[in-house]
Design a protein around this nucleic acid. Structure first.
Ligand SMILES: [Mn+2]
Ligand SMILES: [Mn+2]
Ligand SMILES: [Zn+2]
Ligand SMILES: [Zn+2]
Lengths: 151, 151
DNA sequence: AACTTTGTTGAAAATCGTTTCCATTTGAAA
DNA sequence: TTTCAAATGGAAACGATTTTCAACAAAGTT
């Protein structure tokens, strides 16, 4: 099945391929969640006690700069990460965040309509404000059913 | 002209009206910028050397909880604040953020179309995921003209 | 105006996610 | 292998925000 899909991008940018990087990327690839650096450390630590938290932070920076990973702020005080594109390619989505328990739901409903409007807006804003727009962020905040019940 | 517009809301929630709170609110009311706690401290400090940074953090919490102020994260590592509604009422807008210099631009272009779509989406998501949605966040990221030039 | 209650304040210390330092290790090119 | 810059881990530093706590003051009551 050839070399893992991400290694080309890695080499192309002069980055080395290391166990730590492979393990971290695989951890993100396997989960549905939006993991923090420490989450990843905990997931990994039993099998790889020699990978330090510092390396995880550094690797997440690299991955983010390469565009392989997105970094999010959901309002708890730590950065959270998710894979931007997997072996199967990207599946663009936006987020629904519970302000009660910090649960995060991916949704793709209306994504097409959203993205269509966003592109229209980007065009206008680019021209009007002289920005070169590279990215957007859409999040909805509210209370999940569980947190509504807890009142 | 009667008592300042915000005092009613304050009293109603059992909060006291203090000089610090008045000064902080006025600072936010007078600026076009998105100030951080320290920004506000600096704006205020000459005229009110007795107002401490801690009080500013605490006041911003109160104001945010009252809904008088919005708290934002624009990617530099500090929270930034803006008035939610002034004497003249709110003017809903979204943000364009330069990832080079952290400049933030308010825009209202397409706001109606955005909000219309957002409301539609909120309805669907509320039902589908059982969330009670209270809020949304839309931001565009890119490079401002100055930062594009610096290349 | 003095008294009382209880929210508010400032300064210093604590917190905690993240970054930096630096001596050591390792990937990969030759 | 040899070589050398890139990568690593652990400890220390950082920096925005929060907590602690004794002193203070807003607003209601007498
Ligand atoms: Mn997601
Ligand atoms: Mn704004
Ligand atoms: Zn919840
Ligand atoms: Zn800029």
């Amino acid at each position: 099945m050839g070399p893992p899909w991400w290694q080309a991008k890695f080499r192309g940018c002069g980055y080395r391929i290391t166990i730590a990087r492979e393990v971290i990327l695989n951890t993100l690839a396997k989960t549905e969640d939006h993991l923090s650096a420490e989450d990843i450390y905990n997931h990994i630590h039993t099998k790889h006690p020699n990978i330090g938290l510092t390396t995880i932070y550094r690797t997440l920076d690299v991955l983010t700069n390469l565009g392989l990973v997105y970094r999010f702020d959901f309002g708890d005080k730590r950065a959270r990460y998710e894979l931007a594109e997997g072996p199967k390619g990207a599946h663009h989505h936006h987020h629904l965040v519970c302000t009660g328990c910090n649960r995060v739901v991916d949704y793709t409903d209306f994504i097409d309509a959203e993205v269509r409007l966003l592109q229209e807006i980007e065009q206008v804003l680019s021209k009007k404000y002289g920005f070169k727009i590279t990215n957007h962020l859409i999040q909805f905040y509210g209370l999940c059913s569980r947190c509504q019940a807890d009142g």
